[in-house]
């Protein structure tokens, strides 16, 4: 069952990622990206990271994608018509795909990892992540909060009419 779910999610993931690039209309690309993010959240759930699966849906599918769609509507972007994907770019992209794919295929870890995978990690829920976030990683956590504040101020400054 886990195997079936993995292959299903992987197929949706790669298919929608390709659809982001191939689609000519920005809205269709954004919706493909939402599909990709949902498939990835499913994979996170399959890996036992339920908290991250939820965060993925909230932050990406919720906030980030709404921002993308909002900008698409605001700028009133039209589909690129008559400008085909440049053949050189497609060739380079396929080459990178093959090279990276082959590299990762060769880098499949040895049996030590596989033997380890029999045991299921138990305590990787929101509680233990929260303990880590507010315990060992409280300084990076505060730094990320500061980063969010700086970004918010920066976005407001950038959005003013006369910068």
């Amino acid at each position: 069952m886990e195997g079936f779910l993995f292959w299903f999610a992987a197929l949706v993931l790669l298919g929608s990622a390709v659809a982001v690039i191939v689609n000519r209309s920005p809205v269709a690309s954004a919706l493909s990206l939402v599909t990709m993010i949902l498939a990835l959240a499913g994979l996170f759930g399959l890996l036992g990271a339920y908290f991250l699966a939820a965060v993925q849906v909230w932050v990406y599918a919720g906030a980030v994608m709404v921002l993308f769609l909002f900008i698409i509507m605001l700028l009133d972007l039209k589909a690129e018509e008559g400008t085909p994907l440049r053949p050189l770019g497609v060739g380079a992209g396929l080459l990178i795909l093959v090279l990276l794919g082959a590299g990762f295929w060769r880098a499949i870890p040895s049996s030590a990892w596989e033997a380890n995978s029999a045991r299921v990690a138990e305590a990787n829920d929101a509680t233990s992540i929260g303990h880590l976030l507010f315990g060992a990683y409280v300084l990076p956590f505060e730094a990320v909060g500061l980063l969010l504040l700086v970004a918010m101020v920066g976005v407001i400054v950038l959005s003013k009419k006369d910068v």
Binding site: A10, L13, L14, A17, V18, V20, I21, L43, A92, G93, L94, I96, L97, L99, L100, G101, G103, F104, W105, A107, I108, P109
Partner: peptide, 14 residues
């Protein structure tokens, strides 16, 4: 890992 590598390659190609 292979799935993640393929996904990264698709993004880079994009």
């Amino acid at each position: 890992l292979v799935l993640s590598g393929l996904l990264f390659a698709i993004g880079l190609a994009g």
